[in-house]
Design a protein around this nucleic acid. Structure first.
Length: 420
DNA sequence: TCTGGGGTCCTAGGACCC
DNA sequence: TCTGGGGTCCTAGGACCC
């Protein structure tokens, strides 16, 4: 059997762990730049706050409704996530950490035994981390996702739902009451196409002809059909040796419209991307960089983009920045760019053996990356930068995070204070 | 004034090889 | 000179996920 353990309103729950005054209140967490709502507590959902709503549009209403907003604090969430995942992992030899707030684990046992284990996981994670989780148990991942939805919808289940608990008739009714777009792997577009073929509910899809579905869609949808029947086709994945790509991208809080300005952006983004590369012990073979104008404004939407193969795979901030600069000639001066990113692909583990010196770029031997990491760790990310990224003073386009909580688990100076 | 960021998988099509 | 089939690798684009 497969259990999906997922955290309830994860970001909002993290904010509550170190600020108990938030319990029982509607909490929303905003995207970078305090742009839009990316997570919210049950209470905020009850107030019909919409996921993805631009903050500037609902800010005034939210204040009057007593909604508390927080800027996203990914360092805190990442740290709490690691603790939650470690505890979940104690209950099974097979664990897949699927996302920052979800994990699949493999379990064996009767319906009663597994339901009991589900409750134990729930109380243990809550006791050790303060994060509430739900547990959905079934024979496939797609069904486990469904079970988790069940645990969310039916409060009487106490946060744990085992699909095996239901009779076939009852299960039919549950599936008939679930629209296809509520299933894992099916979003709006595919939902519409399915509806055009008179497949509206999870039950319709489960009972459709799998071969025909494969022909009309793809092997992915065929797997969903089998998974709905309780035949597991999407195995638990071991953690891959490393990821395939690494992206650093951000929106600006003020547009950038000159090549010099964009050069500074690429310089800083390349530095940040290369830091992450070293955190993962990786080197990149291909660097791409892009900058886009806004989709929400008048005028043509435009992206300046370039991809550059590196002569030797590298994690060097200077080499990556220089490669990213290749996008600069495609930047149209005068256009208002609102977003940019540096994407690293062709990733592999950094070897301990140095490449042939003949092919090694001059900056490679100087270990500039490590030096940079050391300084930023001590003095903060603004302390040093390469090229235009080193200019004094925060550039005008940097991120807005006006309602940021403490990074209470990763920075000594931001520890929580307790008063008697 | 203000609309996120970081990923994965699949497919189709082109280039190239034998 | 002409021709077929099978295979791999790469890339771009679409769709989806959290």
């Amino acid at each position: 059997m497969i259990a999906l353990v997922d955290c309830e309103s994860f970001y909002a729950s993290c904010e509550r762990v170190f600020d108990p005054t938030l319990y029982g209140r509607p909490v929303v967490v905003l995207s970078n730049n305090d742009g839009c709502v990316v997570a919210m507590s049950r209470e905020a959902k009850a107030l019909q706050v919409e996921m993805g709503a631009p903050w500037f549009k609902i800010k005034d209403w939210a204040a009057s409704a007593g909604v508390v907003a927080r800027s996203s604090n990914y360092e805190l969430y990442g740290s709490l996530s690691a603790r939650v995942m470690e505890i979940i992992g104690r209950y099974s030899a097979w664990q897949e950490v699927y996302s920052i707030d979800e994990s699949f684990i493999g379990l064996h046992g009767t319906v009663d035994e597994l339901t009991a284990i589900g409750h134990e996981i729930r109380s243990e994670v809550l006791r050790c981390t303060g994060i509430p989780v739900r547990v959905g148990i079934a024979s496939s991942k797609t069904q486990a996702k469904l079970a988790s939805r069940g645990a969310k919808a039916d409060l009487s289940l106490g946060g744990v739902c085992h699909l095996g608990f239901y009779s076939p008739d009852r299960l039919d009714r549950i599936l008939a009451g679930t629209s296809t777009t509520d299933l894992w792997g099916i979003a709006g577009r595919t939902g519409k196409r399915l509806a055009g073929m008179s497949i509206f509910t999870a039950k319709d899809l489960r009972d459709a002809d799998a071969k025909w579905i494969r022909k009309k869609f793809s092997v992915v949808m065929e797997r969903t059909v089998f998974e709905l029947r309780g035949i597991s086709c999407i195995p638990l994945e071991e953690q891959p040796p490393h990821k395939d790509q690494l992206i650093f991208s951000r929106s600006f809080c003020q547009p950038v419209s000159t090549r010099e300005g964009m050069q500074q952006v690429f310089s800083i983004y390349a530095q940040r991307a290369s830091t992450r590369l070293r955190e993962h012990g990786l080197v990149a073979g291909v660097v791409s960089a892009w900058a886009s104008t806004s989709r929400f404004r008048e005028g043509e939407f435009h992206t300046a983009h370039v991809a550059v193969g590196m002569p030797t795979e590298t994690d060097d901030p200077i080499g990556i920045a220089k490669a990213a600069f290749a996008a600069l000639p495609r930047v149209r001066p005068g256009s208002d760019y609102v977003r940019a990113g540096v994407v690293l692909t062709g990733l592999r583990k950094k070897q301990s053996v140095a490449p042939l010196a003949l092919f090694e770029p001059e900056y490679e031997g100087r270990r500039i990356g490590e030096t940079l990491d050391g300084i930023t760790q001590k003095l903060g990310p603004r302390a040093i930068g390469i090229g235009r990224g080193g200019l004094r003073g925060a550039p005008v386009w940097t991120m807005k995070r006006e309602m940021l909580s403490r990074r209470a688990t990763t920075h000594w100076e931001e520890l929580c204070e307790a008063r008697a």
